[in-house]
């Protein structure tokens, strides 16, 4: 495993950045893989009936995909803790889908760990709050 060069990390530093594209197929795929078959994630009629602006991405799909730039940077076995708040739904258009932008910055440096803060946005709105990943830097 390649190490993280802790000495070179600074609070505020960008460690990863990525665009994520979700389509309706992404939602069906996530439903099958996760076992979350809530129809608001694939049926327009059900989404409309419960008053939603459209079919929404699973919050857990957004959470799961948003951490991937950090996984690729740090290595998957260094992820110790990951939390998010679901602050705004992600509407996935049947034709154009949805595009999310993920920016990962060093939020805090600790003893053997670094807290990476994610800013996850769709257009001008952030869709996750307090999205924080704690990675091990001592191995």
């Amino acid at each position: 495993m390649s190490g993280i060069d802790v000495a070179s990390l600074e609070v505020g530093q960008v460690v990863a950045e990525r665009e994520l594209a979700f389509t309706r197929e992404s939602l069906v795929r996530y439903a099958g893989a996760s076992g979350d078959f809530n129809p608001i994630h694939y049926r327009d009629d059900v989404a409309a009936a419960v008053g939603l602006p459209g079919v929404l991405a699973h919050g857990m799909l957004t959470m799961g995909a948003a951490v991937q730039p950090v996984v690729d940077w740090a290595g998957p076995s260094r992820i110790l803790d990951y939390q998010v708040r679901f602050t705004r739904p992600v509407v996935v258009d049947p034709e154009s889908g949805a595009t999310l932008h993920v920016l990962a910055k060093v939020g805090q440096l600790g003893e053997g760990t670094a807290r990476i803060d994610l800013t996850v946005s769709a257009g001008d709105s952030t869709v996750l709050g307090k999205a924080q990943v704690v990675v091990a830097t001592d191995r």
Partner: peptide, 10 residues
């Protein structure tokens, strides 16, 4: 399967 669904390519 789960990794593909969350776009995890590591």
């Amino acid at each position: 399967e789960f990794a593909r669904a969350v776009q995890a390519t590591h």
